[in-house]
């Protein structure tokens, strides 16, 4: 099967992520400080992998649903809504990581709710969803900016989150976000056959019994669920949800049932690898994940596209 070997990247990067870091190679079976470092690294690698799965699941679903190769998990306003949630929480004086993270989740889902309500009134087509989503993103981002200026130094604490990172994830955050991320990805998987038919065109899919309006609503909700949970854990990590579906398509052909599992595993690999690289780019792992995912993913994407043209 084409692309099957690519699944092996995930365990490879995961192992490297647990073994390597600024504190050097740590014996995973050591006691004392060593085991503490290992636990932190496992938490980071696990968070990164789940965030990668959630974002690439969401991106895969939305690219097919919206018939747009540039669709990413944030196209329906989820990330700017989540940021608004966080900033509002900071403005309200909340400081506990769990509170901030739940505020992000609530903000993301609220943004999707508004986008779906408005685009439903406009017929819930690919075009209406994209336009309303992009409009909402801009509107919410502008409020985000005003709030950031307003809050001034108080934002500092959330800055790492706003740029995307898994360096400070807590087990308690992962505990509630992981089920949501997995549920969203699983929901999209259960509709893989329907999405594959949708790739043949709305009319053809309808003639096969796919109710495209309902499918659009379902996939939008499922993707917002996994995306909001991912954003709540790691902030709006960019590029993974856009590029992983494409890497999968270039690696294993076009049909959705075939590309989806590969897309999830590549999204997880890319995020884990990016988090690993971030530890060495800036001391303390402060480099925003988005910059690393984009710096690593963009050349691979361009290379694959170029190879395809030959």
């Amino acid at each position: 099967m084409r692309g099957g070997l690519l699944h092996l990247l995930l365990p490879l990067f995961f192992a490297l992520s647990v073994l390597l870091g600024p504190y050097g190679i740590v014996n995973p079976f050591a006691h004392g400080l060593g085991s503490f470092v290992i636990e932190l690294r496992i938490l980071r690698a696990l968070s990164a992998a789940l965030v990668g799965v959630a974002l690439s699941a969401s991106g895969s679903g939305l690219q097919v649903l919206l018939k747009n190769p540039l669709a990413d998990p944030y196209i329906l306003g989820v990330s700017s809504g989540a940021a608004l949630g966080v900033l509002a929480a900071v403005a309200a004086g909340l400081i506990w990581p769990l509170e901030i993270s739940i505020a992000a989740l609530a903000g993301g889902l609220a943004a999707l709710f508004v986008v779906m309500a408005v685009s439903s009134a406009l017929g819930l087509t690919s075009v209406s969803m994209i336009l309303v989503g992009v409009a909402a993103s801009y509107a919410l981002s502008s409020i985000d900016m005003v709030l950031m200026m307003d809050l001034g130094p108080a934002v500092q604490g959330s800055l790492a989150w706003l740029f995307g990172t898994v360096a400070y994830v807590l087990w308690s955050e992962l505990a509630y976000a992981a089920p949501l991320m997995i549920a969203g990805a699983l929901w999209i998987f259960l509709r893989a056959g329907h999405l594959e038919s949708l790739m043949l065109g709305d009319d053809v899919a309808e003639s096969m019994g796919v109710r495209t309006r309902r499918l659009r609503a379902e996939i939008a909700v499922a993707s917002a669920l996994s995306t909001s949970a991912a954003v709540a854990v790691a902030g709006p990590v960019g590029f993974v949800g856009l590029v992983a579906p494409w890497l999968a398509r270039l690696g294993s052909g076009g049909a959705f049932r075939r590309t989806y599992p590969l897309s999830l595993s590549l999204g997880a690999s890319l995020t884990v690898a990016a988090d690993l690289a971030s530890r060495f780019v800036q001391p303390g792992g402060m480099a925003p994940l988005t910059s690393i995912t984009a710096l690593m993913g963009a050349p691979v994407l361009v290379y694959l596209l170029a190879r395809l043209r030959r």
Binding site: G193, E196, S197, A205, M208, A255, R257
Partner: peptide
Amino acid sequence: DVVISYRMGPGSPWA
């Protein structure tokens, strides 16, 4: 891909 996906229709994600 188009012909195969058409033949298979929606159905199970495992198909």
